[in-house]
Design a protein around this nucleic acid. Sequence first.
DNA 1: CCGTAATCGAGACGGTACGTCAAGTCTTATA
DNA 2: TATAAGACTTGACGTACCGTCTCGATTACGG
Lengths: 191, 191, 191, 191
Amino acid sequence: MNRGRPRSEEARQAILKTALEMCMRDGYPQLTIKALADEAGVGRQTVYRWWDEKSAIVVEALIDLRERELPERFQETGDTLVDVEQLLATTYELTHEYTGKALVGLMADAQSDAGLSDRLQETVIGPRRDALRDILGHGVETGQLRENVPLPLVVDFAFGTMWYRMLSRHAPVDRELARDITDAIAIMLAV
Amino acid sequence: MNRGRPRSEEARQAILKTALEMCMRDGYPQLTIKALADEAGVGRQTVYRWWDEKSAIVVEALIDLRERELPERFQETGDTLVDVEQLLATTYELTHEYTGKALVGLMADAQSDAGLSDRLQETVIGPRRDALRDILGHGVETGQLRENVPLPLVVDFAFGTMWYRMLSRHAPVDRELARDITDAIAIMLAV
Amino acid sequence: MNRGRPRSEEARQAILKTALEMCMRDGYPQLTIKALADEAGVGRQTVYRWWDEKSAIVVEALIDLRERELPERFQETGDTLVDVEQLLATTYELTHEYTGKALVGLMADAQSDAGLSDRLQETVIGPRRDALRDILGHGVETGQLRENVPLPLVVDFAFGTMWYRMLSRHAPVDRELARDITDAIAIMLAV
Amino acid sequence: MNRGRPRSEEARQAILKTALEMCMRDGYPQLTIKALADEAGVGRQTVYRWWDEKSAIVVEALIDLRERELPERFQETGDTLVDVEQLLATTYELTHEYTGKALVGLMADAQSDAGLSDRLQETVIGPRRDALRDILGHGVETGQLRENVPLPLVVDFAFGTMWYRMLSRHAPVDRELARDITDAIAIMLAV
DNA sequence: CCGTAATCGAGACGGTACGTCAAGTCTTATA
DNA sequence: TATAAGACTTGACGTACCGTCTCGATTACGG
């Protein structure tokens, strides 16, 4: 049976919230477990008891954030190009403002951590790709877009540009980019 | 007038070579100054004398590699689409095989290091973009490609997809991608 | 209220014991924090957490030793000359055999460290001087020694000779010296 | 035959002078070869070419100083007690003001360097002892002092007190001490 | 309502890499 | 050949964080 003191939800929230804040403020590499525990007002052991490594903390924090933020920002309309632009605008904004540094750090860590790579694929990369692809696929089905175009490459275009700009900062990641990409997709997929 | 013992070119080469090797083998975060010095058979102080931080070492190593490898792999033909595919194929291969992990690590570090970000822009990101844009621009000038298409976005497409795939590993970065991207560009820029 | 994991008395003892051993064996200058930590089987940080500098470690080790060794070796008899000789013999032996190199090193360090100088005065030099002076003073009070002799200079004689010989090694510091010095004091202070 | 550039006497003097200055100013342990060479405006190799270790430099500097200073400060009179006091006063002053820190440092180093210990005995400790002993011996011969007193112990008294006070700083080493010690010797050796 | 047991914050533990400093050696051009 | 300059390898310095441990104090549940 359940015995002993139950896990403190308060501590969990404080850790996740502080982790994201520190990522945004100082950058992912500067987020250390020690600093995180201190700033969250939590014992270091409490962190290690529930998470193996700092990437796991940040991933969980990102999922929590997504579940809170995405639904209330994005509603499909059925008009493919409108939905695409809306999805991209929402994704770009959320990623750029709140989770950019954290995600780049996670991706970098994943380069030498296959498990983390898979987890990111399942929880962050994949769902986003699926969402965009579903919209585009629906557009093809309803005749709004033409067939015989490799949709994965179109998805790569939309998200690849975002990542590329976030990494190299040669151009902004904003609402205007969402429109430009949508326009380009419209041309490529014009019936 | 007296200039003292000259810098050891041997040590410099050993450090740069070892740095790239360790990046490829173990990953950028696992490349520590101590391990690098030990494996290069060099005093730790010799590393610190010439470079401020490990990112500077890796950047210099990448530049050296590029100067050695790029010229002998890529020759322009004048046929825009051929040149584009050749440039992308060469860039994809070199980046994916030799410098991928190093570049991802550098980009991640650059998220919280403006100086490094600028240096990467000047030495790695910018030149690549310029090379592709020049080829595309020449294609427009010679009438091989149509006008009125935002070339920067096309460049984002080509390199963004590469970065996106290198980061998330959802699809390969290879010669086939170079052909697919070139095909897509051909469609977007068909006269 | 919560005080965390308590300090490890085991580690403390290992550090102090090893410090004295290394001083005796290798000499005070050769006692490095790193070597001390390694030989004591202790993390380096554990040393730095509790002591500012190596002199502080050695001083504490000397105090601990003195508290263990002195009481069981020296008991006053009331006969001034006997007590003097016994105190000197004990001090000479303990100093020469166990703590000589350590004390000389500390004294040398104290030349450019006023704080250390004061601490040595309080914990090592002063108490020794007081002990001898008390015995001599008692001898004067009880009429065993004559008055009107500057006792501090007599104390300087007894301990100065010890230090001088320990430093320059031109003659031994042993039981015979204790007798010779006591004889000389007997002549100087004969009633 | 002699070939090549001759040794620079200028450099030698600069090194010895600077070594003593730095000892007095910063203390013997703070005198590093690097800092010495820099402050003397001399190449580091020039130091290592002529001296094995820093103690050798300081010993040579002390000998040079003694040869310059002692003769012009001390002239024997034939009156034993006057000569004793004059010798002690001169020695105390010179040692305390100019060479104290250097000598303490050397003595400390000599604790784990038998060669240095011997060299100090020959060049610094021994000659001083001999000088005082000669004066006392002459006093005995001429009947100014009584026989049957162990002169070495008297010498230990005079110089031991000086060292003891220099080390522990519990009392000054000055002209007054020279008089007090001379008075005590006068009592001990009264005919 | 009392004991058992898992949690909590705190902080010491043995490690490892950091970036700095000086050691003693070497290699250059100049004198 | 000696010199000033300064790069070389080496190793200790003192610091920061790692991941583990041990403490008293805090909460739940089951007997």
